[in-house]
């Protein structure tokens, strides 16, 4: 993949992945360890996200000296962790200056044990650099985040889906309603505390006239 221009690709070094015991808390230092990961002592052989330095992180740090920007690389893929207060400016800069004109995907992840529970993930692509980049923005429960619809039009439905599935509200979104589930549905299914068999029983009974959808 041409994603990594800095040649920082992590080699598994012949490690058999089954030796990978529950890894020492996921995306590197300070960045949201998944809930299930145990606090096992770090095994250096396990490939883990490591810090990424290169032309792009340099440029961003220069442009936004006040932003606590963290850059990582994992399996040859680069990503930034950006605080939500500044991320819209960073996104705008990445689009207009660095050439990441297409937002390929926008989604979220839920880490209930973290201080900031959610991570909104922006997957960008630049035609001119032929490079992908991920932007991760931690968002706490009940907090809102600025919508990127003015930056990339594609975000409209994608943000609606994140709202639908995680209940993260996007400020200044033109039409923030549920998209896949019915408008009156209670609960956000992709949150980790939403069991797989859970449903909105009241909605099912009122609208489908059956006791249960299962």
């Amino acid at each position: 993949m041409a994603e990594d221009k800095e040649g920082k690709e992590i080699k598994p070094e012949g490690q058999k992945p089954e030796q990978a015991k529950p890894a020492p808390a996921a995306p590197a230092a300070g960045a949201a360890p998944p809930a299930a990961a145990k606090e096992a002592p770090a095994k250096p052989a396990v490939p883990a996200p490591e810090s990424w330095s290169g032309e792009l992180p340099e440029a961003l740090r220069k442009q936004f000296p006040e932003v606590a920007l963290e850059a990582f690389t994992f399996r040859g893929q680069n990503f930034f962790l950006v605080p939500k207060e500044n991320f819209l400016a960073v996104a705008n800069y990445l689009k207009s200056v660095s050439g990441f004109t297409m937002l390929a995907d926008l989604t979220a992840m839920d880490f209930p044990k973290e201080e900031k529970r959610f991570q909104v993930v922006y997957q960008m692509y630049s035609f001119s650099r032929n490079e992908r980049l991920r932007l991760k923005v931690p968002v706490g429960d009940g907090e809102t985040i600025e919508s990127v619809v003015p930056v990339w039009g594609v975000a409209d439905w994608l943000e609606r889906e994140v709202y639908d599935m995680f209940g993260i509200r996007f400020e200044h979104h033109p039409n923030l309603r549920r998209i896949l589930l019915p408008d009156e549905w209670q609960g956000y299914p992709l949150r980790k505390d939403y069991p797989i068999l859970q449903q909105d029983t009241r909605w099912v009974q009122e609208n489908l006239h059956i006791e249960s959808g299962q």
Partner: peptide, 27 residues
């Protein structure tokens, strides 16, 4: 049991870019 972390990989499906963001916690 993949190592903890996540990758995004996409292919050109007949409809367009089909991408998967797979995140692992080591389990």
């Amino acid at each position: 049991k993949p190592p903890a972390g996540e990758v995004y990989h996409s292919i050109e499906s007949p409809k367009g870019e089909l991408g998967y963001l797979v995140a692992s916690d080591g389990s």
